[in-house]
Design a protein around this nucleic acid. Sequence first.
DNA 1: TCTGGGGTCCTAGGACCC
DNA 2: TCTGGGGTCCTAGGACCC
Length: 421
Amino acid sequence: MFALVDCNNFYASCERVFQPRLRNQPIVVLSNNDGCVIARSNEAKKLGVPMGAPSFEYKELFEKNNIHVFSSNYALYGDMSNRVMQTLSTFAPEIEIYSIDEAFLKFEGFDEHFNLQEHGYKIRYTVTKNTGIPISVGIAPTKALAKVANKIAKKFPERTGHVYSIDTDEKRIKALKWLPIEDVWGIGRRHAKRLRAKNVTNAYEFTQLLDGWVRNNMSIVGLRLKRELEGIPCLDLETPSDKKIIATTRSFDKNYTDKVQIQERVSTFAASCAAKLRQQKSCANAILVFVHTNIHRHDLPQYSRSITMKLPYPTHSSIELAKFAKQALDKIYREGYAYKKAGVIVMDFTPEDTGQIKLFENSNPRHRSLMHAMDQINHAIGTTKLKLASQDIKRTWKMRQEKLSPHYTTRISEVINVKCR
DNA sequence: TCTGGGGTCCTAGGACCC
DNA sequence: TCTGGGGTCCTAGGACCC
């Protein structure tokens, strides 16, 4: 059996842990640049704030209803996530951290009389006690069904106590008939539309389709999903592996028309990718750089372009990657546009120490110790204190973060104060 | 004025090989 | 009128996830 544990409204719940007065109050958390809503408490959902809502369009609604607004505080959410995962890992021999707020637990070799439902309640109680984060638990014989069970646990908290187990075929069929097709894990917008057109409206009807049709129209992935929903496990826990691509991309706080500004951003993104590469001890053999204008501004001329460059040698040097990124940018940059977003993606990795030397050109060997020193210093005194000269030394670039909460758990100067009377 | 960021997997089709 | 067969590798694009 598998369990899917999902933190309820995770980012909003993290903020609430440190401001308990916000219990039962509506909360939203915004994306980078305070752009759009990426997390909502139940109260905010009830007030009609949709996922992805642009914050400027909803400003009045926020104010009118006293909705508490937060900029995203990833240092906090990441740390809280670690705490939740640590507690979860004490409840099962195997666990897969599926995302910042979700984990699969696998119960293999448990006695058949072992009451998993009770175990689920214990997990929920302990996580909330240890971290302050409320969770929902779905239990079932496959991962896809555990996802379904989790939805039920979340949707009917009074009846389920936030824990639901699909452990009989009757429950499985009832659950699948209840679940709209677009809410099935692995069915996105495209497939949902095609399935609706075929009169498939819920998960149960999906499982009644012919295997051949599913295979032809939704590939092996769709067929696997069908099996999983039928109760036949096809997906096991996945073990963490190195990334295959690494990206750093950002929207700008405003439109940029000056090439120098964009060069600085691209340099910074490349250096950030390089640091992530060094962390997993990989070197990149290719780099992609893209720029585009603001797609929402229909009154302005649009331009969007990307370029992928093969590198002459594998590298994870910030200096070299920033240099290549700049060359790539030169090829795609056009004067006369108001740019809103850019990004750097590195790919085609080889391990740091394959020992393979290229015939004509190689990464500067001296960069290795230089980068090592840079990483050490930045780790000790703050993530980006040491920068390349091509980066924004004067720190003129700022992400909009007007409603940022303190780094309660990761910065000693911002640790919570408790006043005693 | 203001609309996020970072990933994975699969398939079809083209280039190329013998 | 008729123009083989079988394979690998790479890439772009589509679909999905949080």
